[in-house]
Design a protein around this nucleic acid. Structure first.
Lengths: 206, 206
DNA sequence: TGGTGTGAAGTGGTTCACAGCA
DNA sequence: TGCTGTGAACCACTTCACACCA
């Protein structure tokens, strides 16, 4: 795919624009200028235009962008029309909290199954998703062609489980395990480390 | 403070180094080279040395760094010896999940109180932390000199609550609200947006 | 006139490569 | 010899500023 030329940071911001545009659609606003949208997204107008230009030219000079057009163009360029099935690995404290919460799952995303080393330990918790044993993980991923996994196992097992996930065909990992993961280049890893975020914050609070 | 010259990204990585060093101490390893530590942290050796150099010179040429010395130097430079009291605002689904979980709270950090617009709605959930009404928030922050807040309110209220927090003296916000927050420069905001992370991932998974 | 699209300039952070010291 | 500390080169992204067009 040729889309690899778009910088990672742009992609990230574009996700933000997409969300802002969605809100504009809800409010039935039809046109938006780069200045207005940039303000909503918390970036500079020029940057927004550059980001959007990666996908092509959608704006009308003197007027701005058509909210609907821009939304659907970006959405399709991001492959966002696809339906994404996601698995969660490691149903401990954090894992089960996330499964129960799921407030971050948007339209088009669904946690279809979860896996744990000791599934019987958690099976009674009344979770909205089946909890299977880890030895069923690889076949499950293969058969259902899952691409994205949420990783909530303890640090000690994180790398090992990652290796299994990658071997089974996972190419995107949302890593909650406070561990530095090593994976091939074609695998994208996003780390969410709350302890790190807090520690980082505490440096800046005078 | 003069420490503002250290780039944000360096600070973030230094938090990672600190964690790696902690693990080395546990394993009673006394000396580490930039190459080894960089590998553990997932960065390049030169970058690690540059990062560390921001605080001064701690290494011994030809040998490496003393694990203990480096750890305590960084820790003190980061103001990490302080005890950090943190509040959580918005005890909804996500907020209460975080309160119950708290696995991300490390030594030196504690959620001392939480606030919600409708505290009686959540007060029975058996949380390990008191839930107060939002109108008690400002005085609480002032009296206890809280500096860090975890923000879990719905998007619509996020900016308003942020303004109150800042007015009361908060200078660090961990923002879970999937909202772009506007705040003065002296306030540091870290966004944790799981929906965004997922959307972002889904772009890269082929 | 007003707002996009974009080459060019600027900025910040990364990597290199080597001097210098135990 | 081995590894740190660091100026210099490099690179990626950001911002500017203006041509161009509805």
């Amino acid at each position: 795919m040729e889309k690899l030329t778009i910088p990672k940071k742009s992609i990230y911001r574009i996700s933000i624009y997409l969300r802002c545009l969605g809100r504009l659609i809800e409010n039935e606003i039809e046109t938006v200028s780069s200045t207005a949208l940039a303000k909503a997204a918390g970036v500079k107008p020029a940057q927004l235009r550059k980001d959007i230009a990666h996908f092509g030219q959608f704006g009308t000079r003197g007027l701005g962008y058509s909210v609907k057009d821009l939304y659907s163009e970006i959405k399709s360029a991001m492959g966002g029309s696809n339906y994404h099935r996601v698995i969660l690995v490691g149903v401990g404290n954090l894992g089960s909290a996330l499964l129960r919460y799921q407030g971050f799952m948007r339209e088009g995303y669904q946690v279809v199954s979860s896996f744990d080393a000791v599934p019987q330990a958690v099976i009674t918790k009344g979770l909205p998703v089946p909890v299977l044993a880890v030895d069923q993980m690889e076949p499950y991923i293969r058969e259902n062609q899952i691409k994205i996994a949420i990783l909530c196992v303890p640090r000690e097992q994180a790398q090992e489980v990652t290796n299994e996930l990658v071997a089974a065909g996972i190419t995107g990992i949302l890593n909650f395990s406070s561990s530095v993961l090593i994976a091939p280049d074609h695998v994208t890893i996003s780390c969410v480390d709350l302890a790190l975020e807090l520690e980082n914050l505490s440096y800046f609070v005078s």
